[in-house]
């Protein structure tokens, strides 16, 4: 089968998974159905011959599922209130706005290159000169740590800020609740 058929199959699978995640009443099943989306995306990356992306996507999906299960399973989020009229109107406005944006951006999709044939100006340069200029056999590593290392520095900073934020929230919580437990 051609690669497009597989991709359409995987995308359909992902759509089914996300609809299931919305509709299932049981919370654990809903989280697992969210996992379908990410893991199917990882398989799609493999089909598109991007193993680096597939590895990171696969691992992060597992990480996210663990955090979701840890965070939500013990709590009582199961109750479902009927949405108020304000909520209904706001949802309608959001859906109409998003639909309008999608409708008016159809022309943009026509301007994109055909599937599998991207504009290869920059990528061609990397493919031809990447190995000799950086000495790295894995061109993805060569790009993220040599040509685009500044972006990677930003990525590291994001992680640093995330852990700082989490710790700050806990410090405030500890001080206000007055417990003596040592949080480093």
């Amino acid at each position: 089968m051609p690669i497009e058929t597989w991709l359409i199959f995987i995308l359909g699978f992902m759509i089914v998974g996300s609809i299931m995640a919305l509709e299932i009443k049981d919370l654990l099943s809903s989280i697992i159905a969210i996992g379908i989306v990410g893991l199917a995306l990882s398989v799609a990356f493999l089909f598109l011959q991007a193993p680096d992306l597939a590895i990171v996507q696969f691992l992060f999906e597992i990480f996210a599922i663990i955090i979701l299960i840890l965070a939500f399973l013990k709590k009582e989020y199961h109750k479902k209130d009927d949405p108020s009229n304000t909520n209904k109107i706001l949802t309608l406005v959001t859906v109409i706005t998003l639909g309008a944006i999608l409708f008016f951006s159809i022309d943009v999709f026509k301007a994109l290159p055909a599937f599998g044939e991207p504009y290869m100006n920059t990528a061609k340069y990397y493919l031809e000169n990447g190995a000799t200029e950086t000495g790295s056999a894995n061109l993805v590593s060569a790009i993220i740590l040599d040509y685009r290392a500044y972006d990677t520095l930003g990525e590291v900073t994001v992680l640093f800020t995330a852990i700082l934020g989490a710790l700050t929230i806990i410090r405030i919580k500890k001080k206000s609740s007055g417990t003596e437990e040592d949080v480093v």
């Binding site: 597939a54 990171v56 000495g135 790295s136 056999a137 894995n138 590593s141 060569a142 993220i144 740590l145």
Partner: peptide, 11 residues
Amino acid sequence: HGHLTPGGGFG
């Protein structure tokens, strides 16, 4: 082996 095989520091 991040500079030889798929993967790298992040994965």
